[in-house]
Design a protein around this nucleic acid. Structure first.
Lengths: 241, 241
DNA sequence: CGGGCACTTGATAGTAATCAAGTCCGGTGG
DNA sequence: CCACCGGACTTGATTACTATCAAGTGCCCG
């Protein structure tokens, strides 16, 4: 179920709190400039588990996540899915189409209720010209993304399987973790299968390895979604070799 | 052995043929503009097997490869190297430092005799302001690099081992291949071990899988470096599943 | 309370890593 | 020109590990 809403009231909200301000690429703009940006924004709302866009489709917009999160993944020829990114609030996708004429190369599916801001390709190019600082921010963000991908490659290319699991737990802890009397607590954004598809394993192996980490007293699982990192040092050591 | 040379003669060469023109990010410039760019360029020459820069060092320049090629890699904690890129003529690195203050995250080592053009961070930022088209080209190139990395991840994350070998052979065939009566012929830019470090395997496995492809009549190896793709279709099918 | 789905656990098989000899090839020196 | 040397590559045997297949189990939600 997709609801498109664009009313004056919404846009006012937006310029105050909602989308533009949460998006790093606009942080260098003044309030007035941001209002101008906001006037170009279309917004959409998705429930959990909806597909925003599919591999191979044309996307003539830059899409910014103002609230929620989504996974980007591809299907390989043997039907497995490989997760490439977990996009969080403030992150964007579709940038490729702004600079070259290509279709999108991955599926994007929401992991929870998600609000999107979208800017038309043509409009965005005007913005880029008018505010060069946005271009710099985009480049910075692209570099960040490259860095992330380089880390993923190091992970799945060379590390032992248990190290990959530890690594992804640390990543989630970093992103979503809150302090807790026992350590760092967070909800897993992905199912076991999702984690497996993120680090190139099967769900059974992920299950076993997480269990092993729990037996060693390094983490504690509460239900399926909640994890407490009891011993961050040990988890980091497990990544180290 | 590093030779730094910067004479009027060299720069003249450069503006005509050598560095700036082979570098895509400058292709949109006029001849005069390019001359201006060239005046900001320092150049260096490296022999095969030299280290250009090491992980963790500061690099206050954008480095463009005007001739030759180099591999970028990281050492993992267990001492393996993971190759991230093979930079070819016209490609660049060090862009991360232009937009944010970070050290370089990989080693770069030449694979053959290599000529570099380097532009100082400060100078490059002036260029960016003066010629916004360079910024667009950079973004395009960053998007290309992201695409490459996404493919690498799909490769090593989900594909069967032999498919990865086939995939890398196709990649090299695409990049370096020349027509030949029997098919597509090219020199491998990397040793068996290098290939292994590129696709997350061991040298023995690479050896065995390449042998297998040869036994099946899909490729032919001449010595250690030269490969002929006899049956490109079959190689592509091998990647497909 | 029941149904379904995600997760866990166990047994087995397949495959690549590892360990260990060789072999090939290019370069060097006699 | 040939013999030798060393490094890269190949090949074989064994081991270790994860994928796969197959039952369970537990939990959430109506």
């Amino acid at each position: 179920m997709k609801i498109i809403y664009k009313t004056k009231h919404d846009c006012k909200d937006c310029s105050n709190d909602l989308c533009a301000k949460t998006v790093p690429i606009f942080t260098s703009l003044s309030h007035d400039e941001m209002s101008q940006v906001v006037s170009l924004i279309t917004r959409k709302h998705y429930d959990k588990g909806e597909i925003i866009i599919r591999e191979g489709e044309k996307l003539e917009k830059l899409v910014l996540i103002s609230k929620g999160q989504a996974k980007a993944y591809r299907y390989t020829t043997d039907g497995k899915e490989q997760i490439l990114y977990i996009f969080n609030e403030g992150e964007f996708f579709g940038e490729k189409n702004l600079f070259k004429n290509s279709n999108i190369t991955y599926n994007v599916e929401t992991l929870e209720e998600t609000h999107l801001c979208m800017i038309d390709k043509a409009n965005f190019q005007v913005l880029l010209k008018e505010y060069p600082s946005i271009g710099l921010k985009i480049m910075e963000e692209l570099c960040n993304r490259i860095e992330k991908l380089e880390n993923v490659i190091e992970n799945i290319g060379t590390k032992r399987v248990e190290a990959r699991v530890s690594s992804v737990l640390l990543e989630f802890g970093e992103k979503y973790g809150k302090k807790h009397s026992k350590g760092i607590v967070f909800d897993l954004p992905l199912s076991r299968e999702g984690i497996a598809n993120y680090i190139g394993l099967t769900r059974e192996t992920v299950s076993r390895k997480m269990n092993h980490l729990q037996e060693e007293g390094i983490i504690e699982m509460i239900g399926n979604k909640k994890v407490i990192i009891l011993n961050k040092m040990a988890l980091e050591e497990s990544v180290q070799q």
